[in-house]
Amino acid sequence: MLGLRSDLPLDRDAAARFLPWILGFMVYLAALAIGAAMVVDRLADRWQAGLTGNLTIEVPFDPDLGVTEKSIVIDRIVDVLSATPGIAGTTLLDDREIARLLEPWLGVSATELDIPLPALIAVTLRPGVVIDRASLQAGLAAIHPGTTIDDHGAWIDDALAFLRGLNLLAALLTGLVLAATTLTIVFVTRTGLSIHRGVIEIVHLIGATDSYVAQQFQAQALRHGLVGGAFGTLLAAATLLGIDQLLKQSAALAGALPAAQLDGLDLAPGMGLDLRLLPWQWAVLALLPVATAFIAMLTARWTVLRSLARLV
């Protein structure tokens, strides 16, 4: 019974006519919040995966140390790293690369400033491997005092806490939208019940059950939920895609990095601003209209049954 035929002219009620619009707006907000939460989830996953699979070894040098001495030290460190179980590979970042990474903070090229730069060795770990940091640290310091291992742990913790905060906010917003939607439907249903009191009385006298009366309201709520929900979700999807596109374009225009590079985790993890959702995440969003319609229907039914039960 999808409301193909109705004994009550519910669609003519002023309050009910606004319902699809209100529901559409609500679902739009909820879809944005849920979409944002999912983007954040992916970011968190990728940051964590990207960073926990990596270590950076920092080897500080005296300014007067010669190039050959430096490379001997670095070779010995790389040898130790390569012999350590669980380490998949090492990459030595050369001076030019380090200078490029520092440039945004220094304003000019570090090579021009002639300041002493440490050697940086990026270490890739085998997936799922936990290495004994303390003993590695000790071994490396024995080769060259001052050598440190940075596993980005503090940074990850901060970033994850921030992302969790965002997720909580999204959940809160979704909860509020849900509450507002339910209240709206209760209000519209009650209004409908009172407008059509006379007809409902006749239908009752003819032998209709409360459930029969409720079906009329349910059918309407279901229809409005589907229409409003689909509208809001589509608009939210367009908004998410639009923002994603805008971000990529502006990044590409600024020339900071080629747009293609933004997709994955790059050297600077914070730049991995990918707003696209995975297929299953799109599927979750696509379920929103159905969920809205279902909630609307149940709320309408519950409201009618409860109100009629009070009639004695």
Binding site: H204, L205, I206, G207, A208, T209, A309, L311, V312
Partner: peptide
Amino acid sequence: SRRDFPAIRRRV
């Protein structure tokens, strides 16, 4: 009770 009404009313 209220629940019994519809069945009776359908016979009237």
